[in-house]
């Protein structure tokens, strides 16, 4: 194809997206669109899968059978969400194994929030309330993104995720209505998770490199700063109901703006964690790589068995 022909195709392509048409996997697409989507969708999938680890920490220690079951079900959903997203990504011509390789080699990123440790039971509440809360704000607009498989995966994810935040908030509420010790546990969790949660929306608009292109392709509908503000505005009153304090002395309602003003985010910490210097980056990667390596003989065995028994036991649909 000549450069002119490609330019022409690109123009038609951009027009389709502008017209709210969906792009499906086999449609022609600019290479950059493909690469950007592989990067974003896989990063999203990796986040779901790595995100299972900090919560998985507390499955065996959950304080009641009811909480244990809810937590297990939530983590299971996250595995499911990872799976939907990997599948969406695979329609772009990359295999799940390749995506795992990128994760395990450190080439691919995942949400930095999961590099923070879960130290008490209240952290499970805080993750559901704050981290899932932030994730929902990031994710809802993606239900309408331009790439069909991604949009469909997100519809499913958002539908299932609605119980996650409630689960977390209920944990926090129970703690805050409990003994002083429990309430202190909740406050401590908010203190540790508040700022990392704000960082989940990414660098400020001034620093963000991908925003304009992402807006055009509907990978983004609002800027990082807008989403962050939305999160703060929505979360502060929820903290008030709990009766715990957001750890930001500069936080106050700005009547004129109709929003909360808030303090400076520690961007040095943000970039250090992104670069691998967070409290648990090493542990998370080690856990993923180890699960993958220890599982290799199992995956190989299942394939070998399938090859030996091909065509046996198959029940036809018709």
């Amino acid at each position: 194809m000549s450069e002119k022909e490609i330019k022409n195709l690109e123009a038609i392509f951009e027009q389709r997206i502008a017209n709210e048409e969906k792009i499906e996997p086999k449609d022609w697409m600019p290479e950059k669109y493909r690469q950007t989507h592989i990067r974003q969708i896989s990063q999203h999938a990796h986040s779901e899968v790595v995100g299972m680890l900090p919560e998985g920490n507390w499955v065996t220690r959950a304080p009641s059978l009811r909480r244990k079951a809810a937590l297990l079900a939530k983590i299971q959903d996250e595995a499911g969400h990872g799976l939907y997203l990997y599948s969406a990504c695979e329609t772009l011509g990359i295999s799940r194994d390749e995506l795992y390789d990128q994760l395990h080699s450190g080439k691919a990123k995942y949400s930095s929030i999961f590099n923070y440790p879960t130290l008490t039971w209240a952290d499970i509440g805080a993750i559901g309330w704050l981290v899932d809360g932030a994730a929902i704000i990031n994710q809802v607009p993606l239900c309408n993104t331009s790439f069909g498989p991604y949009a469909r995966a997100m519809v499913r994810v958002c539908k299932e995720e609605s119980f996650h935040q409630r689960q977390g908030y209920e944990i926090m509420l129970t703690l805050c209505k409990g003994t002083p010790e429990q309430k202190a546990m909740a406050q401590d969790a908010l203190n540790r998770w508040w700022w990392p949660s704000l960082m989940m929306f990414g660098p400020t608009d001034a620093e963000s490199v991908h925003t304009e292109q992402s807006m055009k392709w509907k990978l983004k509908r609002k800027t990082n700063d807008e989403l962050r503000q939305q999160f703060i505005d929505q979360t502060v009153p929820q903290a008030d109901i709990l009766g715990i304090t957001v750890p930001d002395p500069d936080l106050k309602w700005n009547e004129e703006r109709g929003h909360y003003d808030f303090g400076e985010i520690n961007w040095d910490e943000f970039w250090q964690v992104v670069k691998g210097q967070g409290p648990c980056n090493r542990e998370r990667m080690k856990a993923r790589v180890s699960a993958w390596e220890r599982g290799e003989w199992v995956r190989d065995a299942a394939l070998a068995y399938a090859e030996k028994n091909a065509k046996k036991n198959i029940k036809k649909a018709m």
Binding site: M52, G56, V59, L72, A73, A79, L83, G295, V298, R299
Partner: peptide, 22 residues
């Protein structure tokens, strides 16, 4: 089985084992 949550040989197996645990 809950100990395995997030550490299984594949995502699909993880989901299956969690189901049994639940």
């Amino acid at each position: 089985l809950g100990e395995l949550c997030g550490h299984g040989p594949s995502l699909e197996t993880d989901i299956a084992i969690t189901n049994i645990s639940l």
